[in-house]
Amino acid sequence: MATTRILEGLGRLYIFLLLAFLYLPIIIMALMSFNVSPFYQLPFEWTTEWYASLWQNDQLIAATWNSLEIAIITTLISVVMGSAASLALYRYEFRGKKVLQALLFPPIAIPWLITGTAMLIFFFGVGIGRGLFAILLGHVALALPYVIVVVSARLQTFAPELEEAARSLGANQWQVTMRVTLPWIMPGVIAGGLFAFAVSFDQFVVSYFLSTPGQTTLPVEIYAAIRKGFTPEINAVSTIIIVVSMALMLLTARFFKFGGEK
């Protein structure tokens, strides 16, 4: 039918417009990070000057290292704890299990503004205070529910008969877990880890309330720089962040798909 054809064509055009809306500002920012004029003036002249000057900006570099360290430690801690919790929720039946599963949603659903200010108050009250350790405490808590949800989804595809079989062949609980269950849920664990890394590395709100001038992360440092005034250096570092986090998510998508196919 002709009308159907036209409608489908319009549909495709519409998707194209949406993608343009989603990507144009990002592409423009990336282009401007290579533009000579610090006031984003056209015509466009190519330079890598702003990327070079990033290397001179000790504050940004220190904040970047903090972000990376915290993201890596957050990933390790939340993957180990989260996978263990998912296994327990999968294997065992007990009273209150539904409550424990429901408790995973407040950290995801409550706006980070509320969670972040609450952490600030509590950590101050109990003497932990602000700084990198407080930020790490917060990030792990934010990442844990995501890891548990992702690993649990992978566990749904696991056949418990495999564990039974291994056990009947004389494997103990530890061997069963390490040799049978863990290899199976590995795609889920890796996807959960990538989630955790992204949650931590891109986290701004919670880090913002928990940071101090010397102990801060990259997004917090960028926010401070934006509020002081725009500079092409922020474009450069923002472009790097966008590329890194998008690459990370493409990687996650791959693992998710492999997880589903096996």
Binding site: F94, P106, I121
Partner: peptide
């Protein structure tokens, strides 16, 4: 079944969530 076998696996994650999410919200 049993909470006793599940607890060692669950405790670290939920303790962490308690310290960093649930107690702070109560403190607020």
């Amino acid at each position: 079944s049993g909470l006793r076998s599940a607890l060692p696996l669950l405790a670290p994650a939920y303790l962490w969530l308690t310290v960093a999410i649930f107690l702070p919200l109560s403190a607020m």
